[in-house]
Design a protein around this nucleic acid. Sequence first.
DNA 1: CTGAAAGCGCTAACAC
DNA 2: GTGTTAGCGCTTTCAG
Lengths: 337, 337
Amino acid sequence: MTIKDVAAYCGVSVSTVSRVLNNHPDVSDEVRKKVRKAVTELHYTPNSTARDLARTQADSIGLVVRGISNPFFTPIIRTIEHGCETAGYTMVLHQVGTADDEVTAARELVQSKRLNGVIFLGGRYDYTKREMAGLNVPYVCCTYTNHFGNLDRASYSSVAIDDKREAERAVSFLVSKGHTQIAMLLDNPQDHSISQRRYGGYCKALREAGIAENPKLVLEASDFSFASSYQVVKDFISSKHPAFTAIFAVADTMAIAAIKALYDAGIRVPDDVSVIAIDGIEVSNYLTPSLTTLCQPQERLGEEAVRILVDVMEGRAGNRHIRLETTPRLGGTVRSL
Amino acid sequence: MTIKDVAAYCGVSVSTVSRVLNNHPDVSDEVRKKVRKAVTELHYTPNSTARDLARTQADSIGLVVRGISNPFFTPIIRTIEHGCETAGYTMVLHQVGTADDEVTAARELVQSKRLNGVIFLGGRYDYTKREMAGLNVPYVCCTYTNHFGNLDRASYSSVAIDDKREAERAVSFLVSKGHTQIAMLLDNPQDHSISQRRYGGYCKALREAGIAENPKLVLEASDFSFASSYQVVKDFISSKHPAFTAIFAVADTMAIAAIKALYDAGIRVPDDVSVIAIDGIEVSNYLTPSLTTLCQPQERLGEEAVRILVDVMEGRAGNRHIRLETTPRLGGTVRSL
DNA sequence: CTGAAAGCGCTAACAC
DNA sequence: GTGTTAGCGCTTTCAG
């Protein structure tokens, strides 16, 4: 069943059918109606592969996600898909493992699928001009930005929170509740990534409060997984360690695992130790007690990413960099000392 | 940058380049090497759109997911993607909203992208022969099966747990712990879906234990979301209701929300009320206490789905129906009476 | 072993 | 308004 069959079926040429399919104006109402009828009767669905090939552009946006199973991303992905559809683009989702490089993946995807633009969801903070040069389409970094790279601000877009500032806020909140011995749980501070930025905020908050930073209170998990954070916290509390009354985790998932590790060791949250995080994933609101965290505006992160990208792709605007704010969610995992 | 450029660059014909690209044997080592070199030097990436069009088949498998943000699905999706890749197929992910029909979506996807087969992840239990007729490729239902439809068993495949039996197991477990007043939390029992099957198991377990079923202990949420379950349980306990000592939830997510609702009402789990569920998503193991649940073999569900589908697609085997068993995870949310 | 050429199904000039 | 036709970039017979 091809466009030819439809054309033959209603005695017109393929171009006429094509015009109807693509809503071109110059077709008589009569013919248009006839073709539409044939399409439904024949259950004809256009072959998008052929269409994409014939058109110079595929009208599609690549979404390159690093860690699709990260619950923080799921609402964002949904929003982005919806936004793409509304704007008339197909979203092509591509997941990259922690080991793979998202830029290489994106470059191949763009070449191979003729994408009009790409959105990176989660990624490195240190892209270089050189490596991004091959990506000949506009792109926006969603949930992060190029803090440690050498990209021109005008060459790409980004939508994210201000990691450093929000981390500072979280830690200052703990300080305001009387905490001074504050541990930090992060994944890998020297990888030029989110943890490093948030670690900066942690240090700044301590400094401004006149609290000396204690390196022994910095707990490094190997990634964002529950298992890894659980293990790190478990090892920490079962070893000789400095006293601490609070933990600041760089992600809700890590906080959840930390609370569990504390609980399993007989340490109660918030009675014995307070916990605060950044992210605001849905499930953390359903813990008992709810996790105290700074919620990222997940929907808006996705919406803005699409909006900016489409604007740039269609030449309506230049690249932009948007910083959104978090909204504190006062759960029950922080207590005043 | 097309295959022509590569051909011109190394002074051979496009067909030779194509042969090298597709690892056809009949190319001299010398030419092969030269072409390979050119490909890397030119940073050439084949246009998959053109390739798919030229080939009669696209070597790709559609994964039609109903509710991509369902945390129960994420490990399965990952496994399926990996399995497809290993088998030499590209996975095309397509998410359908709760309102859309997955079969229509799949049919269009197949026609439009020339898919070789499709995997449905979550879906209705009542497909009819008629509606599936348009889907001219093999398909497998992953995590569910056609219990309420009229499909020939030989016309499709399925990989799932035995919902009824597992639900029975969960409820029998509660009974064995001395519970007799057992509530059930489900989403929509009359939609010919998972809840209905598990509800059947609940009834059977009660019957076999000689416990009269009390309709007032059946709590219906409007969907699987946290919010909906939370609300239902909250309304239930704040209204005039029969006494109950345990809740069986059809999904971990619903159980998590239920526990929260109980907690917020001052009811403790497991001290006052026990909770058991089916699914075994990762986060439920990190609650305090861990959720007692029957874990579905998520990885295996995905692996088997791909294996069966590929076997059918490549003519190595016929359709099959596999029932896998759950593994109980004894958390801390059930206590003996 | 290698090249020429005919499509894959559709779009978009370009004629009429 | 409608039809004809030349590609889009690649694969794949079919010759040589």
